[in-house]
C-alpha cells in the first residue's frame, strides 16, 4: 500500500493557482523528493498535505485512508509527521520536553493527555521513547539544554527528532537543510540516509546535490504543476526540467 497518494490537489490564492492538480504518490519505504524553483508551490503543497492549508480540490490518502477532510492534528494522529522549513520548536522547553511533547502525541497512543496528576517525566515508557528519539539524531548530550540556547543545526536535528518521536507512518520534510553550514548539512544528510527505508518520506529540498544523493524518485514542481516524476537519473536528463531550471545549476 502506498504511504501517501494525492489526487489533483488544487489550492488557489485569489486568482493564482498555487498548486495545480498535483498528483503524486509516496510508496512504502520510498524517499520521494519534490524540487522546484522558488515560488513553485512547494510550501503550499506541504501545508495541504499536513492539513494546515485547506485544499480547494483533490484528495489526500494516507496509508489508504482518505484524510482530505481531516484537520491537522487528526492527520498527525494517523501517523503524518512533518518538519518545518523555519524551525517550529517550543523555545523555552528543554530538548527533552520538546520530544516528550511529541511522544505524548504519537500515532496509535491514547487519543488525549487529560492526565493532571502525575509528572509527565514520571512516565518511564514515554521517557525512554523520547531518549531514543534524541539518540537517533545524536542529541543525547543536549537532553536538558534549553532549545533557545541550541545552535541552528542542533535545532534542525531536534525538528527531526520530534517528528520521529511521534512514531510516524509518513515523514514530510520541509527543507531540512535550510540555513545549515556545510558540516551541519553533511550530518543531516547522513541522518536522513540512515532513516531511509525505515520511514516513507516526502522530502522538499533546495539542495540538489542532497536530493539526487538521497531520493528514490524525484518530482519537479513548477508553477504549481508537476512537470516530471522519475528516478534521479531520469530527471537529470529531462529536457523540460532543464528548461525550467535554466540559469540554475543542475548537477
Amino acid at each position: 500500500m502506498s504511504a501517501l497518494v494525492t489526487k489533483s490537489l488544487v489550492k488557489r490564492f485569489g486568482g493564482v493557482l498555487a498548486t495545480d492538480h498535483v498528483s503524486l504518490t509516496v510508496e512504502a519505504h520510498e524517499l520521494h523528493a519534490v524540487i522546484g524553483p522558488n515560488g513553485a508551490g512547494k510550501s503550499t503543497l506541504i501545508g495541504q498535505l499536513a492539513g494546515e492549508i485547506v485544499s480547494d480540490e483533490g484528495s489526500v490518502h494516507l496509508l489508504g485512508q482518505d484524510v482530505t477532510r481531516l484537520n491537522t492534528h487528526q492527520r498527525a494522529r494517523l501517523g503524518l509527521a512533518r518538519t518545518y522549513q523555519i524551525t517550529q520548536l517550543a523555545k523555552e522547553f528543554s530538548a527533552l520536553d520538546n520530544v516528550l511533547l511529541a511522544v505524548n502525541a504519537r500515532a496509535g497512543h491514547k487519543a488525549h493527555n487529560f492526565q493532571f496528576w502525575h509528572n509527565a517525566h514520571d512516565d518511564q515508557d514515554a521517557m525512554q521513547r523520547a531518549d531514543a528519539a534524541l539518540a537517533t539524531v545524536g542529541l543525547t548530550s543536549m537532553r536538558n539544554t534549553l532549545v533557545a540556547t541550541m545552535a541552528h543545526g542542533e535545532q534542525r536535528q531536534l525538528e527531526i527528532a520530534m517528528a520521529l518521536a511521534t512514531e510516524p507512518r509518513l515523514l514530510l520534510l520541509d527543507e531540512p537543510l535550510a540555513g545549515m553550514s556545510q558540516g551541519e548539512s553533511a550530518a543531516m544528510i547522513a541522518l536522513l540516509k540512515s532513516l531511509k527505508g525505515r520511514y516513507p518520506m516526502l522530502l522538499v529540498e533546495h539542495d540538489m546535490e542532497a536530493v539526487f544523493a538521497l531520493a528514490d524518485r524525484v518530482s519537479v514542481l513548477v508553477y504549481g504543476r508537476i512537470i516530471a516524476t522519475g528516478t534521479p537519473d531520469n530527471i537529470r536528463s529531462n529536457r523540460e526540467v532543464r528548461a525550467a531550471y535554466l540559469g540554475e545549476e543542475m548537477p
Partner: peptide
C-alpha cells in the same frame, strides 16, 4: 507538570507545532 500541563505549555510555546504533532 502533568502530561496535560506539558501540552498546555507546549501550546503556549508553539501552538502551530503542538497541533502539527497531533495535539488538539
Amino acid at each position: 507538570l502533568s502530561p496535560f500541563g506539558l501540552v498546555l505549555r507546549g501550546s503556549k510555546a508553539n501552538a502551530r507545532r503542538a497541533i502539527a504533532l497531533g495535539h488538539p
